Simulated assay, not measured.
Amino acid sequence: MKRAIISALFAAGVVGVASADIQAPPASEYTPTRKLGRAIANLIYSVEEIPLGIINWTSREGDYAGFSVGIVDGTATMFERMGYGIYELVTFWAPTYKCTYKPPYQGRCGMSGLKEYNPNGGLSEFPAELSFQSYYKYSRQQRD
């Protein structure tokens, strides 16, 4: 009798652990609050797309392209990001994109998963950061 109870509890534990993996759906990290935060960030920081366009076009094609095409491309991307910001601000309470709260635009992140710029892609989920914060480690670390 004792052995049957222990084996039943063990089986219930294994089934409980096995089903825990499928409890959270893939879109569970996207919530109405994240959508509202994304909308506010897109509205406030969309202006950063202009210097980002200048920087990217200058590094790829040179100064003339950066200060002509880069300004135009950055301004177009700024208005695109502002449009998505207004859209998400108005509809933050409703799951609009494929019945989820995911952003309705494609990301610019590369295959590595790091935040990197790809001019042929879409918009990233949040605006780019023009600050001293870096996602890459450029300096060497000393060993003990």
Rank of each mutant, 00 (worst) to 15 (best):
L52M: 12
G53W: 04
G53P: 07
I55C: 12
I55N: 12
N56T: 14
W57S: 08
T58C: 03
R60Y: 12
R60K: 15
R60D: 15
R60N: 11
R60Q: 15
E61Y: 08
E61G: 06
G62T: 07
G62P: 02
Y64S: 13
Y64D: 13
Y64C: 05
A65I: 14
F67R: 03
F67N: 14
F67D: 09
F67G: 06
S68L: 04
V69I: 13
V69K: 06
G70F: 02
G70W: 03
I71F: 06
I71E: 02
I71W: 04
V72L: 13
D73Q: 12
D73E: 15
D73R: 10
G74Y: 04
G74F: 01
G74A: 04
T75F: 15
A76N: 09
A76T: 14
A76K: 14
A76E: 00
A76V: 11
A76I: 03
T77Q: 11
M78D: 01
M78K: 00
F79G: 02
F79Y: 08
E80S: 11
E80T: 12
E80W: 03
R81N: 03
R81A: 13
R81D: 08
M82P: 00
M82R: 01
G83P: 01
G85C: 03
G85D: 00
G85K: 04
G85Y: 01
I86E: 00
I86D: 02
I86C: 01
Y87N: 05
Y87I: 03
Y87A: 02
Y87F: 11
Y87Q: 04
E88S: 00
E88Y: 00
L89N: 05
L89R: 05
L89E: 01
T91D: 06
T91Y: 13
F92W: 08
F92R: 01
F92D: 07
W93R: 01
W93A: 00
A94N: 09
A94E: 07
Y97N: 15
K98S: 07
K98P: 08
C99R: 12
C99N: 11
C99F: 07
T100S: 13
T100F: 10
Y101M: 03
Y101N: 07
K102E: 14
Y105D: 05
Q106T: 08
Q106R: 12
G107D: 06
G107M: 11
G107T: 12
R108V: 09
C109E: 12
C109L: 08
C109H: 02
G110R: 05
G110H: 06
G110P: 05
G110K: 14
M111Y: 10
M111T: 14
S112P: 13
S112N: 11
G113L: 07
G113T: 10
L114C: 09
L114T: 10
L114M: 14
L114D: 14
K115W: 09
K115D: 15
Y117P: 04
N118I: 14
N118F: 07
N118G: 06
P119N: 07
P119G: 04
P119S: 09
P119T: 09
N120S: 10
G122S: 02
L123M: 03
L123Y: 02
L123A: 08
S124D: 13
S124K: 04
S124F: 07
S124M: 10
E125C: 09
E125V: 14
F126T: 07
F126K: 06
F126G: 09
